[in-house]
Amino acid sequence: MSPRILLYGKRALTHALLAGAVYAVATDQVTSIFEPLSTPADSVYRAALLALAVCAAIFVTVVILLINAIVRYRHRPGDDASEPPQIYGSNQIELAWTVLPILIVVVLILVTARTIADVEDYPQPPDALKVTVVGRQWWWEFRYPDLGIITANELHVPVSESGRRQITSLTLESADVIHSFWAPQLAGKTDLIPNRVNRMWIEPKQAGTYLGNCAEYCGTQHAKMRLRVIAHPPEEFANWVESQRRPAAEDPQASAGRAIFFSTSCVNCHAIQGTSAKGTFGPDLTHLMSRQTLGSGAAPNTPEKLRAWVRNPQAIKEGCLMPDMQLSDQELDQISAYLLTLK
């Protein structure tokens, strides 16, 4: 069998086995672990298919044995009251069903070990893009130490092309409790643990937006600690980097809102690069309007939602650590107008 046919066979198997994967095709935002688009996710996928196939075979065998026993040996109305022959066991048979599983286990161990080595011990190339991910209640901070960029909730990375591989190497840390970075199509998850540095890597093969979530329960708003990874073609990524490195916009038309922003406690938690706002407790707002969502995926980043968020974040993400600032309608308009200039 050629490898191609084998691959199609595997695909068919997945889709036949998993109603879930078939269903996912019809939805707009895929996060199925059976549609990997990145090298480590693909390695996992291959190991997973093998495990599924082995388990399916065992399942079918045992269920047939069980049903056969139920049907063949059921007590029938016409049976006499006598007891069936009393069998106490058989060493040969018991040996057989000890040895067979051990053989299966050996196969699984080998496949598992190989996949672990492929993913976990893969040497990171020197040209890998380095990003530090900091988990926070309940949002993500992304720092690009080599590029001098700090952003939040949406991780921008270059896509890996067949001619030129591009790996992104993530350093995972936490500022408070344990979180877990999980974008299913890109890689398995790895935890972000305070007082500990973890690593993982991704290699997206297709441009586009990949969705994910925090996958370790981290407190009240664990559910809305959502995650986006946006993979760009190389040139588009270069443009994104350039735009992110620009200082924050200073539009004179928004000076009223700017004045309010800098005279309230907004600056205690948020940073805007190149200004006196240097808070680190909340997301960096320098290029807020370049992001797709607010509150780590709690709402789309539209002018209306932005105003609603500033008015009372608790209404959109109950329990989040940004308080209702009790701003007047006029102040809200002005601050929103200022934030809208932070492109």
Binding site: V44, A48, F59, K189, Y217
Partner: peptide, 23 residues
């Protein structure tokens, strides 16, 4: 319990668990 055991084996495949863990 047969199914529980088999899904347990799948979770034992550590790389598969990287995907399935906490899901």
């Amino acid at each position: 319990f047969l199914i529980a055991g088999l899904t347990g084996v799948m979770l034992g495949v550590a790389p598969f668990d990287w995907q399935l863990h906490d899901s």
